[in-house]
Each structure stands twice: as structure tokens, then as C-alpha cells.
């Protein structure tokens, strides 16, 4: 779905944010891009919808070279939710906000109505339909931004720090929701620092540091590798940390979430679960 070939990117101020990055993301894949602040994560995903174009190298989205098409064209394929929702919200009501892109894309008014209702319901925003997005809390605004992108049903969904300001329940909803998107063979790319969220999701993980990709693999492989974890300036999930201390007692050290941990402990203690 997305093919990044030897991409380097330098901002006009001379900061080299990406250095020779190559990466393939398949159709229906769920990838979490993680790494230090300033590692180039956001710069990389902004290339996927053409907001930024490579200084060197090429990017193909669904077979199309991003240099050859406009952001508007790519936007139909790649829905992008920014880190800071205030960068994309501007309408007077939540409802208008979610309908905005649909109107721009020329959907029929009846379809728009249905889609908007669906997206608002999905993200628990129906009660705020007629509220100004700016009256909402940070976490709620984030959900409005998400609803407005999901409403037009893009093939690829890029979420930059989707869990910021979200409580546990919302995160769990988001996770289930991403699972649904994947089941519909959508490609979901998140940029996140939320190690616990990634451990729950069990997605693929791309680790970045200093404009380069350090490693790509399963969440388990990436998050339990302490050398990689340190290099990417993240920390292991709390479960991994706990089990690292239990290695002497013969417990496995490659666990990342509660379910695995519970199972391993009950097995060890020979308790029927």
C-alpha cells in the first residue's frame, strides 16, 4: 500500500529530518511508528498524504508516486489526523466539522448525513453534534478530528498520537475500532509514544531514531528488546519490566500485555484459568 524508497527529507531551515528511509507497509497492515521526539516520525507520515514531498527518493501510495498528484487527490486515499486537533478544526459545530470534507469531496447530502451520524456515534460524540468544537475538552476535540477523517472512509488512516488526552475507555474503543478497520483491509498507521497502547494492540512496530528506521518487527520483538527500546527512547511496557525481574524464577521475558502475563503466571502456579 505504501512504499518508501530511499527517502531523505530536509526542511527549508536545513534540518535533515529523514535520512535514506526505506519502508514497505502492506495493504491491511497495522503499524505503529515509535521513537524519540524529533526522530522524524511525523515528517515521515506527512509524506504519505503528500503534505511533504521527499527531497530525495520516492514514495508510492497505492501505486501512485506522491510527487505526481495533489494533496487533495491523495487525501481521498489517505486520511490524516494531526497530533494537535486544533490544526484541523475550524467549523462552528461538530456536525459541520465532520461533514466538511464529505461536502468537499462532493458526496450527496443524504450520504453525508448518514456518514456523519455514523462517525459521531462511533466516537461517542452524538451529544455534541451542535456544540462548537472549541467548547470541547482536548480529548474530545481529538475525537472530532478522528470522526471527520473516518467519515470519508479512506483506504489508509494515519493517526498522529491518537491516544493523547484519551482516557482508558476511549483508548480501548480506539483499539477495537482499529481492529475493525484492519478487518476491512484498511491500512492503519499510528505515530505514538504510548507503549502500553501498542502492547495491547499487538501491532507491527517501526522504531525510528535520528531520521532513520532502526528496526521493524512485531510489538513483542520490538518492545522486549531492551537495546532497541533504549535506542528509540521509549520504555518497555510495565508487564515486560515486571517479568524481566522474574527471569531468575524461570518466567518468560518476552511478555508485553496483561493477558499473556496472567496466562504465564497461572501456568507456572498450576492454577486453572
Amino acid at each position: 500500500m505504501i512504499e518508501v524508497k530511499g527517502v531523505s527529507f530536509t526542511y527549508p531551515n536545513g534540518v535533515e529530518a529523514l535520512r535514506e528511509v526505506s519502508l514497505t507497509i502492506h495493504d491491511g497492515e497495522f503499524v505503529a511508528i515509535m521513537g524519540q521526539n524529533g526522530a522524524g516520525k511525523t515528517t515521515l507520515v506527512k509524506q504519505f498524504n503528500g503534505l511533504l514531498k521527499p527531497t530525495r527518493g520516492e514514495i508510492f501510495v497505492d501505486g501512485v508516486n506522491t510527487r505526481k498528484v495533489s494533496v487533495a487527490t491523495l487525501a481521498r486515499k489517505v486520511g490524516f489526523v494531526f497530533q494537535n486537533p486544533d490544526h484541523q478544526l475550524f467549523c462552528e459545530t461538530v456536525e459541520d466539522e465532520v461533514a466538511f470534507a464529505l461536502r468537499n469531496f462532493g458526496f450527496e447530502e443524504s450520504t453525508i448525513k448518514k456518514r456523519v451520524a455514523w462517525a459521531l456515534n462511533l466516537l461517542d460524540l452524538t451529544e455534541y453534534r451542535e456544540t462548537s468544537p472549541f467548547m470541547l475538552s482536548g480529548g474530545e476535540r481529538k475525537r472530532v478530528a478522528l470522526a471527520s477523517v473516518l467519515a470519508w472512509n479512506p483506504k489508509v488512516v494515519v493517526l498522529d498520537e491518537p491516544t493523547i488526552g484519551q482516557d482508558h475507555k476511549q483508548k480501548e474503543k480506539l483499539r477495537q475500532f482499529i481492529v475493525q478497520l484492519i478487518a476491512q483491509r484498511k491500512t492503519v498507521i499510528i505515530v505514538t509514544h504510548d507503549v502500553e497502547f501498542v502492547a495491547e494492540c499487538n501491532s507491527h512496530v517501526v522504531l525510528m531514531a535520528q531520521g532513520k528506521i532502526v528496526a521493524k518487527g512485531s510489538a513483542k520483538q520490538m518492545l522486549t528488546n531492551s537495546a532497541l527500546v533504549t535506542q528509540a527512547s521509549i520504555v518497555s511496557p510495565q508487564i515486560t519490566q515486571i517479568f524481566l525481574e522474574l527471569a531468575d524464577l524461570g518466567m518468560p521475558i518476552d511478555l508485553i500485555n496483561i493477558h499473556e502475563a496472567r496466562e504465564a503466571l497461572l501456568n507456572f502456579l498450576e492454577v486453572d484459568s
Binding site: 482508558h168 510495565q238 519490566q241 515486571i242 496483561i258 496472567r262 503466571l265 502456579l269
Partner: peptide, 28 residues
């Protein structure tokens, strides 16, 4: 729906399976 620390959560699911821990951990 508070994001209870995994350390505490783990102790809860163990207690529910009949493993007595005796106290509630908060940190890893």
C-alpha cells in the same frame, strides 16, 4: 475506566483467579 497501572491490574486479575498476593502493587 481509569487507566489503572498494569502492575495493579495484573494483581487484580490474579486475585480473581484465586492467587492471593496480600498487598496491592502500584509500580513494576
Amino acid at each position: 475506566g481509569v487507566g489503572i497501572p498494569k502492575a495493579t491490574r495484573l494483581s487484580q486479575v490474579l486475585e480473581m483467579s484465586g492467587v492471593r498476593l496480600g498487598r496491592v502493587p502500584v509500580t513494576s
